[in-house]
Design a protein around this nucleic acid. Sequence first.
DNA 1: CACTCGATTTCGTCA
DNA 2: TGACGAAGTCGAGTG
Lengths: 231, 231
Amino acid sequence: MRLVIAKCSVDYAGRLSAHLPLATRLLIHKNDGSLLVHSDGGSYKPLNWMSPPCSLTVHEPDDDQRAAGVTALWRVTHAKTADMLVVSIHEVVHETAHELGLDPGLQKDGVEAHLQKLLAEQIALLGEGTTLVRREYMTAIGPVDILARDASGASLAVEIKRRGGIDGVEQLTRYLELMNRDPLLAPVAGVFAAQEITPQARTLAEDRGIRCLLLDYDAMRGLDDGVPRLF
Amino acid sequence: MRLVIAKCSVDYAGRLSAHLPLATRLLIHKNDGSLLVHSDGGSYKPLNWMSPPCSLTVHEPDDDQRAAGVTALWRVTHAKTADMLVVSIHEVVHETAHELGLDPGLQKDGVEAHLQKLLAEQIALLGEGTTLVRREYMTAIGPVDILARDASGASLAVEIKRRGGIDGVEQLTRYLELMNRDPLLAPVAGVFAAQEITPQARTLAEDRGIRCLLLDYDAMRGLDDGVPRLF
DNA sequence: CACTCGATTTCGTCA
DNA sequence: TGACGAAGTCGAGTG
């Protein structure tokens, strides 16, 4: 990995055209050839970048560019598409390089898959006497997150989201239409379960007779394991 | 901006829990307090991070941590949520700091908005004799990208995407349902226009009587301006 | 290999 | 400010 602090301007031509005016920025040239252009603020997203597979070549500026103050041109071209990133270097403030080696990678816990597992284990949250039929119940148009039966034996199709929006309601509606045509399952009632539900999604769901269920992740996790939080 | 190459492990606790085993990584501490943890590969997304507003404090390791080789603890806490990122530093390989100043920011050109503008200008691509009514035609559930009339005077609602997937067909379907209830507009036919259309989306669209139109961005741009490409 | 879907998504826009 | 849709999205899982 090579780190360069440089006064530069940047042009990108590919799926869109973009330009960065002259300023001092951080250039990160990774071992796989990719390049990130970062400013001293904003989120984790670079101002501009080239994703691997790609390669960087350094060129001499032409007379016009040299007259404009450009001392070097970095050209990063994507190996498969025609995407190109050109960094016009005016001044290198700092440069350093290091061998980092392969990274073991991130271990995650607590995403939608975990919510689904917890709700399957605590299926009574859907109502007293509810029993789990199975997770990822397969239909012709895709898997329903959870299929259950309520105390009266009627089917429940549960769609789980971390953030519940209109799209999730649309998705559950498609499943319900399909499943209610299956005499072995019908009637199937819908439950839209999420950590957050937008007002629009709630309105749409209830208008379609779909029950909304807010999930408290911390409480569910607390019931699941006795492990104290790390910090 | 402070750049540190360090052998470290990282723990995140917030909307989820995540852990990075011990390895050598790049730590970027930006001026707004945010921290990025990058490896020497992957995409532009860091392995882990904390978004602003947040603040970093350095702590001494306790005896257990010191025995495990930890020389310093960086604790980054989010200012509003309870999110926390803890970097356990084992060894600092390199450290440098620079003043970058405010960045003028990125200038973009050429996304979906451009496709919409081009298609509005080249409305005959929808069929000989088609006329533009207006772009961003407002309905109760949102704006339709383009409203037009074909040679026979019938209304056309056009949904434009760069990549046409099932979601776009669903969206257009909702618009069509609504607009066909308006006697001033009905009957309204649908056109799903995109640079790429997935087979599933095409099948769904055609099943619903929606016409699919592949857009050739380069050809449309070529007709639009005589400006040669930058590189 | 292609397609789908989630994401600590982030980012813009608009009501 | 909140909600919604797009992204040069990226990446994982599945048929």
